[in-house]
Each structure stands twice: as structure tokens, then as C-alpha cells.
């Protein structure tokens, strides 16, 4: 998922405001960074197409609200960054544990038992 600077700002604004139309978003950014209503409208449209905003037509204008909250969005971003480089390879980043791995509870229990045995043997040896 790739976002431009203005897209990030608009998204941040909508997480705070919860809901707004293009005019309200434009008014907010006009004072801070300038830009036309058209730019804001196309930014909102792009965010909607990326699935990050929901919109509803009220009277003649669309009202936008975030499709997910900030933490869920960051979770999506992490997933996107750690997504596979190609169809047959794992991610490009180095994670402490593979975020894409399917760890089954039984396997974890077996590994824990292995660690416990090691710990017991070690304490026996130390005595």
C-alpha cells in the first residue's frame, strides 16, 4: 500500500474528525498547506478507491469517513510491507519471528517441552 504525503495527511485528519466532506477537508488544509478543492477531491477519491475511506452521498456531496481505524490501518501497512516479494518467496524484511508463518499450537507446545527438558538437564549438570 503506497500513500502520498497529502493522502497521509487527509487520512490523519479524518481519523480525528471521523467524518467530513471535501469542502471541510479543504478548509482544514487551506490554512495549513494551501491547495485547491479539486486536489482535495481527487485525494479523497484516490483514498476511497484504495479502500481506505468509505463515502456516502448526502444531498449533492460525498461525505467521507475512514474505512478502518488507525491501528487497523497500521496493521494493514505492516502486512503490506512484509508481503511476499514474489509468488514463491518470503518477505524482504527480517522479522524476529516470521510474521507469515503458520505456527500451530501443538508445535509450540512441543518446542516448549524441548526447552523445558534442556533446562532440566542443564540444572542437573550444574548440580
Amino acid at each position: 500500500m503506497i500513500l502520498g504525503e497529502l493522502e497521509k495527511l487527509v487520512l490523519n485528519y479524518l481519523w480525528q474528525a471521523r467524518e467530513a466532506d471535501a469542502k471541510q477537508v479543504h478548509q482544514h488544509f487551506e490554512k495549513r498547506r494551501g491547495g485547491s478543492l479539486n486536489t482535495i477531491q481527487s485525494t479523497l477519491d484516490r483514498l476511497h478507491k484504495k479502500g481506505l475511506l468509505r463515502r456516502e452521498k448526502i444531498a449533492h456531496a460525498f461525505r467521507y469517513r475512514p474505512a478502518m481505524d488507525r491501528t487497523a490501518f497500521i496493521g494493514e501497512l505492516i502486512r503490506s510491507v512484509t508481503h511476499d516479494f514474489s509468488a514463491d518467496t518470503d518477505s524482504l524484511m527480517s522479522a524476529f519471528v516470521s510474521l507469515s508463518a503458520e505456527q500451530d499450537e501443538r508445535q509450540l507446545e512441543r518446542l516448549e517441552a524441548m526447552i523445558e527438558r534442556y533446562r532440566q538437564n542443564k540444572s542437573k549438570d550444574d548440580k
Binding site: S98, A101, Q103
Partner: peptide, 20 residues
């Protein structure tokens, strides 16, 4: 592993379990 599977499932997850 407690995170919902659809969030983390990868196109190739056979390997990660082995890796741990």
C-alpha cells in the same frame, strides 16, 4: 499466532513453521 490468520497468511507459509 493469535492474530487472525487472514491478516498474516502468506503465499508460502510451509517454510516459516520449520524455521522456528
Amino acid at each position: 499466532a493469535r492474530v487472525s490468520p487472514q491478516q498474516w497468511v502468506s503465499t508460502s507459509c510451509h517454510f516459516g513453521a520449520d524455521a522456528l
